[in-house]
Design a protein around this nucleic acid. Structure first.
Lengths: 338, 338
DNA sequence: CTGAAAGCGCTAACAA
DNA sequence: TTGTTAGCGCTTTCAG
């Protein structure tokens, strides 16, 4: 196929063992020898075989990213951060989407990835997903976001506080009938979502506002779902005066639903999202900004640490969120109505 | 480490060769033997070593996705389509971002991926990128989108027609001073962008409208870039009456810039994007819809064909675009002004 | 500091 | 249909 260590050894006049050592920069190699090998390698345009190395060392040189949401903006942003860190560590990225209901023969990620990667980055997977359990049982290095689990390190945001901040923001502006567009069923939540829900309750309780079940609708974290949810809310006898969507994408859908019915966001009904995607600025959507790129990078570094692949200093694992107030939660005319 | 073919062979009382054959479903195996092996494998919870298989066969069982835009919406959507197809074929996805200027020691993708993957999916890489050239020289299966190259198969959209449609839409509504927010430098384009530019010229020529260089600004395919571009345009003595942004994301930024200056999109200045992202609906942004999920899936299938990994029928490789007219290119009040 | 030799786990001829 | 026997390309003891 290509140039192998054997070729290098022959041309350089050393053994394959020395080639291997030189190539990996061991200091138990004479500098001159090393240079010789390196030169030959360059001259012959040598490219190593990761498969052979993996087989020999037992290390795959790659990590698996597991998430149910390959097509969500938040994932995209995390991926950016992960990619940067992992590339610097020379680790490959293997993508695995879990829980795709459209897959007729789901191969469990354990089977698919177990021997293929050195560790896992698990993003926003439901805590009681069987896939998750299986992976944890593997006993391999795992770093998670949006979930916690025994034996795995996690990167967090303070979701409870973030959600409370969103609610407070609405409450401060005088809203009392506040709808919540959450993701999936409240009783089967990914941990992150659960925290978010608790944060809402915190704020409501503090403000002495009763929680109305009827004002809580699922939006499945998609724009279409948010649109349906909002449509539903608008058909109520007493629609809410404000809406907190658990993701910006659901908020986009909600805004869409409002516009379709001639309801002006931020004017007739206030709305706040969660995620802080760049695009929200163009929609004047208030939101809780979440540093997804940083989350990705942090999780990646964390995993590298567990793999012993980096000497970079550890960084904080609880990342901050921030309220970004825009027109969708308050214009002059809106205040006048209160 | 774990259970190996040897273990299976021993327990099942057959040779490793038979185990291997049974596991891979060869029909040269007695059904009973196969079942026996399968049972044992399941009982021992066998998970194969892809590295060993790869080393032995020379096939990596994975494909490399190369793109400069890991953090763009279009990539996200293509990734969705790719993932679905590749997973069905049991192929792993390796991500590689090219041309990241922030990377101090870029390892060329050839070195990084050559031995690691069986083929490449190259998305929106500039035609004269040295990385591209190197990969093509490898002589491995390659499928591209947004670029063409010798020896590689491609998936296309008719970008020239799409861009012309966008321009026609604006021209039909009476616009004559139409700005174009393109991506990078026109003389160093990814092929796709070049076609898009030609489409603009086609439309302008047909309409007999002179092309003004001053109305063409780069937006680098980012929202921030689009915002800067629009800001620049608004500072001109004679700002355009309409804008065609080569991507929805740049259009979002442009809308943002307009709003910041009290200019009403679709009312004071018309704007149309390109890509057809879902979110554009919430912004009432007219756009040229591009079937990115389908593009990803099609490219993936195409590559699988080249790899001889699928028997699925080939599908069309030129995919359609579609104009979606929304309020950003025409409201009643806007028409009144003409 | 360097070399020889034995694998890592699997697959692929070639025989049987 | 099945088994035997070599590897695939690299790393890693263990000597030297």
């Amino acid at each position: 196929m290509g140039v192998t260590v054997k070729d290098l050894a022959r041309v350089a006049g050393v053994s394959t063992a020395t080639v291997s050592r030189a190539l990996r920069g061991f200091d138990s190699v004479d500098p001159e020898t090393r240079q010789l090998v390196l030169d030959v390698a360059k001259r012959l345009d040598y490219v190593g075989s990761p498969a052979a190395a993996a087989l020999s060392t037992g290390k795959a040189g790659s990590i698996g990213i597991i998430t149910p949401f390959v097509d969500r903006l938040a994932f995209l942003r995390m991926l950016g951060g992960i990619e940067r860190e992992m590339r610097a560590a020379n680790m490959d990225l293997l993508l695995y989407r879990t829980g795709d209901p459209s897959d007729p023969h789901p191969v469990p990620p354990r089977k698919r990835l177990a021997r293929r990667v050195d560790g896992f980055l698990i993003l926003s997977v439901a805590a009681e997903s069987p896939d998750l359990e299986e992976i944890l049982k593997l006993g391999m290095p795992v770093t998670m976001f949006g979930t916690t689990g025994p034996g795995a390190s996690s990167v967090y945001i303070d979701d409870r506080a973030g959600a409370a901040a969103a609610m407070d923001h609405l409450l401060e502006r005088g809203h009392r009938r506040i709808a919540v567009i959450y993701g999936r069923e409240i009783d089967n939540p990914i941990v992150l979502e659960h925290q978010r829900y608790l944060g809402c309750l915190d704020a409501m309780r503090r403000a002495g506002v009763p929680v109305e079940d009827r004002l809580q609708v699922p939006g499945h974290y998609t724009m279409a779902g948010g649109e349906r949810a909002m449509a539903q809310l608008l058909e109520r006898d007493e629609p809410p005066s404000a809406v907190f969507a658990f993701s910006d994408e659901m908020a986009y859908g909600a805004i869409q639903a409002m516009k379709n019915r001639g309801v002006r966001p931020g004017h007739d009904i206030a709305i706040i999202g969660y995620d802080g995607h760049e695009i929200s600025a163009a929609l004047d959507l208030s939101t809780i900004s979440v540093p997804f790129e940083l989350i990705g990078a942090t999780a990646a570094r964390e995993l590298l640490h567990e793999l012993g692949q980096t000497s970079a200093p550890r960084t904080a694992k609880v990342l901050p969120t921030e309220l970004i107030a825009r027109a969708s939660t308050g214009t002059a005319s809106f205040h006048a109505e209160l």
